[in-house]
Design a protein around this nucleic acid. Structure first.
Lengths: 109, 109
DNA sequence: ATCGGTATTCAGCGTTACTATGTACTGGTA
DNA sequence: TACCAGTACATAGTAACGCTGAATACCGAT
């Protein structure tokens, strides 16, 4: 992955995953697949699992273990009220930054 | 500063500073002031100077020392050809990510 | 003589994403 | 039976970045 992308994902990947979970609960492997569908093809599995551990420890998601017929049990994550608040703030922060960058980009042409 | 903003700035602050330098050469203290004007009020001075050291070491900018009547000499940074290429790639990376997030944000309403 | 504004620098810290690897369960196939 | 691919999760070690807090230095005004 490009180094710029790696750095830019810091802080935003978390929001992306929370946004995915906001639309519906999902488990790690599924989230990774969803990210790849969206074009984020180079995000390592390990990265996603580490992120899920973090947001669970912060209490942004609820977790449920669900048996699977094709492999080990899945840990299904769903956004709770605290996570929704956090996601709202993420969007505010993102919008603010995106506006600033938009201005800079326009000005630089 | 909000923790989300701190993390989100990783990778983007560098692009922001390069974009500022693209419009015209500037020195550290001036860049900090410019950032504050743009609403990025909480970015520490030390952060900007450290960033300038990095981009100088990577050869993205040219540096010239200029005497000042009101304080120590200024280190004026200007974007060179290599820096312009790097900035172009930054905008491509940013646009890609912004598009993905835009989709997620729209979908989540 | 001191305070505030200008201007730069640095050591130490916390957080994040990546690399690389390991574990474990299931179903198909040679 | 043995093997492999797909599914599913976990983790130790690393690099990079922005922040905190402090120090240094020059100047003009009170």
């Amino acid at each position: 992955m490009g180094k710029q992308m790696t750095e830019m994902l810091k802080g935003t990947l978390e929001g992306i995953v929370l946004a995915i979970l906001a639309s519906q609960p999902a488990y790690g492997y599924e989230i990774t697949a969803r990210l790849r569908e969206q074009g984020l093809t180079e995000i390592a599995e390990g990265t996603v699992y580490a992120l899920l551990v973090r947001i669970e420890q912060r209490g942004l998601v609820d977790v449920e273990k669900v048996a699977s017929t094709q492999g080990p049990p899945r840990k299904v994550y769903s956004l709770n009220a605290s996570g929704r608040d956090y996601l709202d703030e993420f969007w505010r922060t993102w919008s603010f930054l995106a506006d600033r960058l938009e201005q800079l980009h326009e000005g630089g042409k």
